[in-house]
Amino acid sequence: MSQGIGVVGLYVRDQDEALEFYVEKLGFRVHTDARNGDYRWLTVQHPDQPSFQLGLFTPQAPMLDAATVQILREVVAKGAMPPLVLVVDDCRAAYDRMRTRGVEFTQAPESRYSSVDASFRDPSGNGWKMIEARRGQ
């Protein structure tokens, strides 16, 4: 695939903490970790999805003014950023594995609508829905 979405970014409160979470706890890989002064371009990838990068960015100066940084930090911490969906082969197994690693689940796996889903948050407050892929999709 040569066309399509390459990077979508999340705001996180701390990039080291986010990196540890997405890599150690979720099993993502680092794609790019480049620093320039205080600025850090950090993206991770799902191991099965090499064409897509998830950016882990902090709201920060000089791109944003201090008041905007504060508002964005509040919005993330309140869990008010848009929904994220992670698709897995086996929701219950992923739940067990991730919980053992210390992921904060906000909903245990539930069977409904011919699938199984659970919910978790990253340390910053970004909320993920984890949905088991339906057979044949």
Binding site: R13, R73, E74, A77, G79, S124, G125
Partner: peptide, 10 residues
Amino acid sequence: PDPKLLRRLL
């Protein structure tokens, strides 16, 4: 508000 507090309220 302190974002850390907000995260705990969440």
